[in-house]
């Protein structure tokens, strides 16, 4: 029985993966990422002998930004396209649940985005090696954290796409990403203001996706790595949040009238 569940999810995931890697946006963004990461070699060369620092900081930032862009642009239209094309009727007429469709969509898109990040990582590692940095093991750890964050963002984009058109979904997703990276600072900022504002922001801090924990770029840039406990907690946080979003998305899809 369990095997059948997984097989159904796998079939949806496989098709989603194929569909997303055929998307022109995917290739366009990947091409931009390739140019941007390679361009850091030139930027490093005009940095007064700080080549490696420039290449690593901008390279890791580039992988993150392009990963997020690919996620948001593909993820926010994922469910909407199925609903618009009415292909979701067809899928749901088969013995498959809403949750399995959502889980399959998530895994399919996650695989394709992870593949694009893997491609960017190969370029990044080549550029760092070319700039005299050897094999950037810590950089790989930062990219692993980026992939975990991207997973959460895919779940978020799918969640939005179950009830919203692609353009508003993109705006919602970008807003949540922006807020998610500013929550820590907002909490600090409201400490100086009223207690009510501070409590509200503190509440949001725990409820909204807190994305700062996925950012270890500044840490690895100077040869530091997070503790194993931190790695475990980050993975756990992302997993729980992703499950909540996917379950919420499945519920919204179920309640939606076609």
């Amino acid at each position: 029985m369990k095997h059948t569940h997984l097989t159904r999810i796998f079939v949806v995931a496989k098709n989603t993966f194929k569909e997303s890697v055929r998307d022109k946006v995917f290739y366009a963004l990947f091409a931009f990422a390739f140019v941007a990461i390679t361009f850091t070699i030139f930027l490093g060369s005009i940095s007064l002998d700080e080549d490696l620092h420039i290449v690593r900081s901008l390279g890791l930032a580039g992988i993150y930004l392009f990963g997020v862009l690919i996620t948001v642009f593909l993820g926010t239209s994922l469910m909407y396209k199925e609903i618009e094309r009415r292909t979701l009727y067809f899928i749901l007429s088969k013995p498959i649940s809403h949750g399995q469709v959502i889980a399959g969509k998530f895994l399919g898109l996650f695989s394709s985005v992870a593949l694009s990040i893997a491609g960017m990582t190969i370029i990044y590692l080549g550029v760092v090696w070319y700039s005299g940095g050897g094999f950037d093991t810590l950089g790989l750890l930062a990219i692993f954290f980026e992939i975990i964050e991207v997973g959460l963002l895919i779940a978020l984009s799918i969640f939005f796409s179950t009830f919203s058109k692609p353009l508003p979904s993109i705006v919602y997703a970008l807003l949540v990403i922006y807020i998610g990276h500013s929550l820590g600072m907002l909490v600090d900022f409201t400490k100086r203001g009223s207690a009510l504002a501070h409590d509200v922001v503190q509440g949001l801090y725990y409820v909204l996706p807190n994305l700062e924990k996925f950012d270890i770029r500044d840490l690895v840039l100077y040869g530091n790595a997070p503790s194993l406990t931190a790695v475990f907690l980050v993975i756990l946080y992302a997993t729980i949040y992703t499950i909540i979003l996917l379950a919420g998305g499945a519920l919204l899809l179920q309640k939606r009238e076609f």
Partner: peptide
């Protein structure tokens, strides 16, 4: 978006 070191670069 937390890209402090990239902006600093």
């Amino acid at each position: 978006l937390g890209l402090n070191s990239a902006v600093a670069s």
